[in-house]
């Protein structure tokens, strides 16, 4: 089989401050096509992407991270990429860890490699609230999936072709990380966690404030319930 075609999807909403650095880091880490999906930025984000010579998908207005990623997956699906890597545009994810995630996929024992901050205690000390929420969702998902997960809210992940196609068709709209894991599981896809480094958000604020986080919890819990009741895909697939 020929080398798998690799696409790095970088969702970016007003990330002009960090995007150039992220692209350089990704390029240093892997040989891959890069697409920046600009989620209706009002700053120079799209110009920076064009200047760096990567593919650019420009959403005409802000759709949220879920629909932004879905746009990237639609591009990957249409252009026939075998593997899609998600790296946030804010520089939070250490692109140097991408090869480790790709290895997990290449071994063929999983359809999604999930970058985890807490596996092997890679030494991340984010805000306490965030850690607590992640721990809660990781617990819930571990129970639902019958498999131990430590970082269910991580947006640093790699997926293979079947999941690219699934997510291009259907992907949760906002706060998609946790829900997408369950959706993958319901489609009988295998998930494997890989330890990664994450940095504290250098530029800008976390996307989740204190009031928002309550909404986040309720919304994701409800979404998990709904997804679970939709039932699993038939065994044959």
């Amino acid at each position: 089989m020929a080398e798998p075609r690799l696409l790095v999807v970088i969702p970016a909403h007003n990330e002009a401050g960090s995007l150039e650095h992220v692209i350089a880091e990704v390029r240093a880490a892997v040989e891959a096509a890069i697409v920046v999906v600009d989620d209706g930025s009002t700053d120079a984000t799209p110009d920076i992407a064009l200047g760096a010579g990567v593919e650019l998908l420009r959403l005409p207005f802000n759709l949220g991270i879920g629909s932004t990623m879905q746009t990237g997956f639609q591009f990957a699906s249409r252009e026939g990429y075998d593997i899609a890597v998600q790296v946030d545009g804010d520089g939070q994810h250490d692109a140097g860890c991408i090869p480790a995630l790709l290895d997990a996929i290449a071994r063929g024992d999983c359809d999604m490699a999930l970058g985890s901050r807490y596996l092997d205690s890679a030494g991340y000390d984010g805000p306490a609230g965030r850690r607590w929420g992640t721990a809660l969702f990781s617990r819930i998902l571990s129970l639902m999936l019958g498999q131990k997960l430590t970082d269910a809210t991580s947006g640093f992940r790699v997926i293979n072709r079947p999941l690219i196609e699934q997510f291009a068709r259907d992907y949760p709209r906002d706060y998609p990380e946790v829900e997408a894991l369950l959706a993958a599981h319901m489609a009988r896809r295998r998930i494997r966690e890989v330890p990664v480094n994450m940095r504290r958000r250098g530029d800008g604020r976390s996307s989740i404030g204190s009031f928002r986080s309550v909404y986040y919890m309720v919304k994701v819990l409800l979404a998990l319930l709904v997804t679970a009741t939709r039932g699993k895909a038939p065994q044959a697939d």
Binding site: L56, L57, P60, F61, S67, Q74
Partner: peptide, 16 residues
């Protein structure tokens, strides 16, 4: 609206 925006992003890239 979401689907239109996504389609537009893809077409915009193709045009470029």
């Amino acid at each position: 609206t979401k689907m239109l925006a996504q389609k537009l992003a893809l077409l915009d890239r193709d045009l470029r």
